[in-house]
Amino acid sequence: MTLEYLDEIEAPRPKPAAHKSTPPFAALRAFESVGRVGGLRRAAQDLGLDHAVVSRHVRSLESWLGVPLIDRLQSGGRLTADGERYHRRISAALAEIAAATSDIMRPGEQGPLKIWCSQGFASHWLVPRLGRFRADSPGLEIEVQPTEAKPSFAAREADADIRYLWGEATPESLFAGVRWIELVRPEVMAVASPDLLAAYPPVREPADLLNLPLLHKKDDEQWRGWLAEQGLTGIGPMPGLRLWYNSMTVEAASRGQGVALANACVLRDQLRDGRLVKVEVGRPVTSGAYFFTTRADRWSHPPLVRLRRWLTQELAE
C-alpha cells in the first residue's frame, strides 16, 4: 500500500447527488487521466496540477456518482470494476468532444500537426529527414515533441505518436480509441567507435563484449536481453555507464566511451559516416518495432495520411 492513499482508505462510501444531470467537467477530466496514466500522482503530472487537487476531483466524482471508482487498498490507483467501465465511456466521450472541436475549427485555426516520439528517433532519424516531408506539405505547421511519455489523445496533446515497443507489444496496450500501423521492426545491434574497438582485443563472439566498457540505458536489462538472444545467460554484474536515453548511449558510443545497443533506424547516419561501426558478432536480434498511432477518428485526416505514407516510404528505404 502506498502512502498516497492512506488518507483516503477510511473515506465513507460516497452518496449520489441528483440535482445535476452531469458531473463537473474538471472531475471527469481528472478521472480520465487517472485511468489512462495509472495513478493519481501520474495524473497530476499529466494535467499539470497538484496531486491533492486531482485527488479531490476524483473523490468529488465518486461522491456525485455514489460509486467508488478507485480501489484505494491497491497500490498504483487501480480502478474498480465500475471505474473501468465508466472510464471507457468517459474516454470515448472526451475524444468525441475533441474531435467535434477540431472538425468545426477552420483549417488555419487547428494549430500545428503535433508529433510525439522518442528522443533518439526524433534527433537521429526524424528531424534530419523532416525537411523532405515539409517540402511536400507547404503551409503545414509541424511541432515535434521528443519524450518518453505517452500522450493523451483525448486531450489532443498529440496528433500522432511514433513509439518503439519491445517484444510483441502493440499500441493497444497503451491507448484506447486509436488506430495504428507497424512502421518497421529494425535490428538491434551492438555498436562502437572504430577507435574504441582498435584499443581492445578483437571481438570474435558475443561473450567477448563483456571485456569492453558497456553503455546502458538506465539499467543493464537491454544488454542482458540481447546477450540472452545470443545464448548467454547467468551473467554476473555488468558495470558500465548508465544513461537515461538511448540517444545518450549512442552519443557516448560515438565519442569512444563504450559499446551501445541501438536499433538500425537511429544508427543509420552514424554507421554511414563511420562514427560508429557494427560489432559483427552473434545472430541478428529484433527486439521490437516502431508504431505510428493516431486517434481512430483522425486516421483519415489528410495531414496524418501524408505523414503516415511518408514515414512508411522513408523507413522502407
Rank of each mutant, 00 (worst) to 15 (best):
residue 8 E to I: 11
residue 8 E to M: 13
residue 11 A to H: 14
residue 14 P to N: 08
residue 15 K to L: 15
residue 15 K to F: 09
residue 18 A to F: 15
residue 18 A to V: 12
residue 19 H to E: 14
residue 19 H to N: 13
residue 20 K to N: 09
residue 24 P to K: 14
residue 26 A to M: 05
residue 28 L to H: 01
residue 29 R to A: 12
residue 37 V to G: 02
residue 37 V to I: 13
residue 41 R to G: 04
residue 44 A to Y: 02
residue 44 A to I: 04
residue 51 H to I: 07
residue 51 H to E: 14
residue 53 V to S: 12
residue 54 V to C: 04
residue 54 V to Q: 00
residue 57 H to E: 09
residue 58 V to S: 02
residue 62 E to A: 07
residue 62 E to K: 04
residue 63 S to D: 15
residue 64 W to I: 02
residue 66 G to A: 08
residue 68 P to N: 10
residue 70 I to N: 01
residue 70 I to V: 15
residue 70 I to K: 02
residue 71 D to A: 11
residue 73 L to T: 14
residue 73 L to N: 12
residue 73 L to V: 10
residue 74 Q to T: 09
residue 76 G to L: 07
residue 76 G to H: 05
residue 78 R to W: 03
residue 78 R to K: 15
residue 84 E to Q: 14
residue 86 Y to W: 12
residue 88 R to Y: 09
residue 91 S to D: 09
residue 94 L to A: 05
residue 95 A to T: 09
residue 96 E to F: 06
residue 98 A to K: 02
residue 100 A to Y: 07
residue 100 A to M: 13
residue 102 S to E: 14
residue 112 P to M: 08
residue 112 P to V: 09
residue 113 L to V: 07
residue 113 L to P: 00
residue 114 K to V: 14
residue 117 C to G: 03
residue 118 S to L: 03
residue 118 S to P: 01
residue 121 F to W: 07
residue 122 A to G: 02
residue 122 A to S: 13
residue 129 R to H: 15
residue 131 G to N: 06
residue 136 D to W: 05
residue 139 G to F: 10
residue 139 G to C: 11
residue 140 L to I: 14
residue 145 Q to C: 14
residue 146 P to L: 12
residue 146 P to G: 11
residue 149 A to L: 14
residue 150 K to F: 13
residue 151 P to C: 08
residue 152 S to R: 07
residue 158 A to I: 10
residue 159 D to F: 04
residue 160 A to M: 10
residue 160 A to G: 09
residue 165 L to K: 05
residue 168 E to P: 04
residue 170 T to M: 07
residue 172 E to L: 15
residue 172 E to D: 15
residue 172 E to V: 15
residue 175 F to A: 02
residue 184 V to D: 07
residue 185 R to L: 08
residue 186 P to D: 02
residue 186 P to M: 05
residue 189 M to E: 01
residue 190 A to P: 01
residue 192 A to F: 00
residue 193 S to Q: 02
residue 194 P to G: 05
residue 196 L to C: 06
residue 197 L to V: 06
residue 202 P to Y: 03
residue 202 P to R: 08
residue 206 P to V: 01
residue 207 A to L: 09
residue 210 L to H: 08
residue 212 L to D: 02
residue 213 P to D: 06
residue 226 W to T: 03
residue 227 L to C: 05
residue 227 L to V: 07
residue 230 Q to P: 05
residue 230 Q to C: 11
residue 241 L to D: 08
residue 241 L to A: 10
residue 241 L to Y: 04
residue 245 Y to R: 15
residue 246 N to A: 14
residue 249 T to W: 01
residue 251 E to W: 03
residue 251 E to V: 11
residue 255 R to F: 08
residue 257 Q to T: 04
residue 258 G to A: 08
residue 259 V to W: 01
residue 260 A to W: 00
residue 265 C to F: 03
residue 265 C to A: 10
residue 272 R to M: 05
residue 274 G to I: 01
residue 277 V to W: 00
residue 295 R to P: 00
residue 297 D to T: 15
residue 297 D to C: 14
residue 298 R to T: 09
residue 303 P to R: 11
residue 309 R to K: 14
residue 315 L to H: 04
residue 316 A to M: 10
